[in-house]
Design a protein around this nucleic acid. Sequence first.
DNA 1: GCTTGACCTTCCCATTATGGGAAGGATTAG
DNA 2: CTAATCCTTCCCATAATGGGAAGGTCAAGC
Lengths: 129, 129
Amino acid sequence: MSAKMIRYYEEIGLIKAARRANGYRDYDANDVSVLQFIRRTRDLGFSLEEVANLLALWRDRKRPSRDVKKLASQHIEDLERRMRAMRAVVRTLKTLADHCHGDERSDCPILDDFASAPAKKAARKHAHA
Amino acid sequence: MSAKMIRYYEEIGLIKAARRANGYRDYDANDVSVLQFIRRTRDLGFSLEEVANLLALWRDRKRPSRDVKKLASQHIEDLERRMRAMRAVVRTLKTLADHCHGDERSDCPILDDFASAPAKKAARKHAHA
DNA sequence: GCTTGACCTTCCCATTATGGGAAGGATTAG
DNA sequence: CTAATCCTTCCCATAATGGGAAGGTCAAGC
């Protein structure tokens, strides 16, 4: 975690840092664990806005665990949605690549598709290809 | 595809647009197919930089299809890499969520993990948890 | 005690792809 | 002719991060 990011997190209000007399930032053990929390949640793909919500839940020790689980579940669903979309794209690209010679010849079904397929998704379910 | 984006694509040199006498942009059938090409490749997750490369290959009708296939394959691998990472995150989050009551009680293994897991990936293979 | 290097600070800029909105000119409908 | 609509350019904002300049501070060496 870069110093730049720590300053940025402070700027957007995610963390508050005490300063020493000389203006240098000073982090106690608690500040450090907040930073680790941020690092961990960022690594798990939560946006900084979501991290802020999770931090709030973490700090409020009386909140129902349901609230936390809900945020986590929503994030899981978001990731799964995005993975489904990516998988569809990969399928399409693999099909195209499979039909491309991939040699010295210049004709290429990949570019042919890029140049001509409006790809309306639902409409393409019954399109010819 | 918004007018804003068309202007932006022109600005970064992806497309060139003829102007009418009054300064209005004018797109002929060829310009439109370039725009459709961009739309299609963007929908398939290529970055604008990659789109520019693909467009160059498209315009150079003598390039070997191998070059096109290579770009497509790299993009597929990139997507698969990202999907693997996301899948790992989803697995982790699901495990955490499974162990969370998700009710009125406040204790929550999800936040406990966020607060304590440095998650060193390789190092964690043998970590205690 | 002073110099030097390492580290800290703030401030500004760039990135990627997109949208919002203002100010003003062109065209078209009535 | 006027009013609405469409076009233009220009500036700003977004999310999360990095780069780098200009300047203050601290610690080590002599």
